[in-house]
Simulated assay, not measured.
Amino acid sequence: MPYASALRNRLVDAPGSLGDRLRTARWERLAGCFPGLAELSVVDLGGTAEMWQRAPVRPRRVHVVNLAAPPADLPDWISARTADVTDPAVAAGLGTYDLVFSNATIEHVGGYRDRRRFAAAVERLAPLHWVQTPYRYFPVEPHFVAPGFQFLPLAARARLVRRWPLTHSRVGNAEEAMDAVIGVELLGRAEMRHLFPDSELLSERVLGVTKSLIAVRPERDPGAHAASPD
């Protein structure tokens, strides 16, 4: 439905939208936690090369790990690998970096055991990290832009997603609908603290209400960086 796509765009995707303003504020906060970002090597778990090409600060080097294949042409400071970082063998083969960055990925990796493996990969890959995830108890579920959606029974969510007009991608049948809703498990504070016990847990707020959680191990000494892989 064109009107629904236009409404979602105005709320989430378009320049000047609420989503765009939140993304800008998030970049500013990231720069505050990592003032030496331009000199860091970064491994991005679940992100895209396009996001980094649009970023206001360009790190020295970025390696993107995602299940989706990257674009064919990448600038020389960005590399990419199609892989599942919850596989310990994959994480062990990625080398080491200065900073792990992950934006809205940990809620998609699978169940609790996969989230534990994801957190273990974060710890292994770099001394610094920034892991952001939407907060389970924010009133509006962000993937489907639906109030209270995450609190409905699974079957009700699967039925609703087939009709709800503000979803990012339309589902074609009941199986796709169930896959879509099972594939998102939002996290609360207790689980994030459990997964990242030695990290600072920051809150990203909208009108005073927590919208996202960010597990951060910030840069204390911008001059001390880890060795980067070739």
Rank of each mutant, 00 (worst) to 15 (best):
A92P: 03
V85Q: 07
R115M: 15
T105F: 00
A119C: 05
E123Y: 15
S102Q: 08
E123C: 11
L99A: 09
E123A: 15
Y97L: 05
T96Q: 13
T86I: 02
A119F: 05
D114G: 02
A83R: 00
V90C: 08
A83W: 12
T82R: 15
V122W: 12
T96H: 14
R113K: 12
A92M: 04
V109F: 07
R124H: 14
I106V: 15
Y112M: 11
V85N: 04
T105Y: 01
G95N: 03
G95L: 03
T82D: 13
A126C: 05
T96E: 14
L94R: 03
V85L: 04
V90A: 04
P88W: 13
H108I: 00
V90M: 03
L94V: 02
F101T: 09
L94M: 09
R117S: 15
A119M: 04
V109Q: 05
A120C: 03
P88D: 14
G95A: 10
L94G: 01
L99Q: 08
Y97F: 15
R117V: 09
G111F: 11
A83Y: 10
T82Y: 14
T105I: 01
T105Q: 02
G111D: 15
A89Y: 12
F101E: 02
V90F: 07
D84Y: 08
V109N: 06
V109Y: 09
V85C: 09
R81V: 11
R117I: 03
R117G: 13
T86K: 08
A83E: 13
A120M: 03
D87V: 00
D87C: 04
D84Q: 09
G111Y: 13
E107D: 13
E107V: 01
G95F: 09
A120H: 08
G110Y: 13
A83D: 13
T96R: 12
G93N: 11
I106D: 05
V100Y: 06
T82I: 07
V85E: 09
A89K: 10
D114T: 11
D84I: 00
S102G: 07
E123V: 00
A92T: 03
A126Y: 07
I106E: 09
V90Y: 05
V90Q: 05
G95H: 10
V122R: 03
G111N: 14
G95Y: 11
G95R: 01
E107Y: 08
V109R: 05
L94I: 04
G110N: 05
D98Y: 04
E107M: 06
F118Y: 14
A104R: 06
D87N: 15
V109P: 03
D87L: 08
G93F: 08
R81W: 13
D87G: 08
A91K: 04
V85Y: 07
D84N: 12
P88N: 11
A104E: 12
A120E: 15
R117T: 11
L99E: 10
T96D: 14
Y97D: 02
I106Q: 05
E107A: 08
R117C: 13
H108D: 07
V100F: 00
A119G: 00
T82L: 10
T82K: 14
T86R: 02
D114M: 09
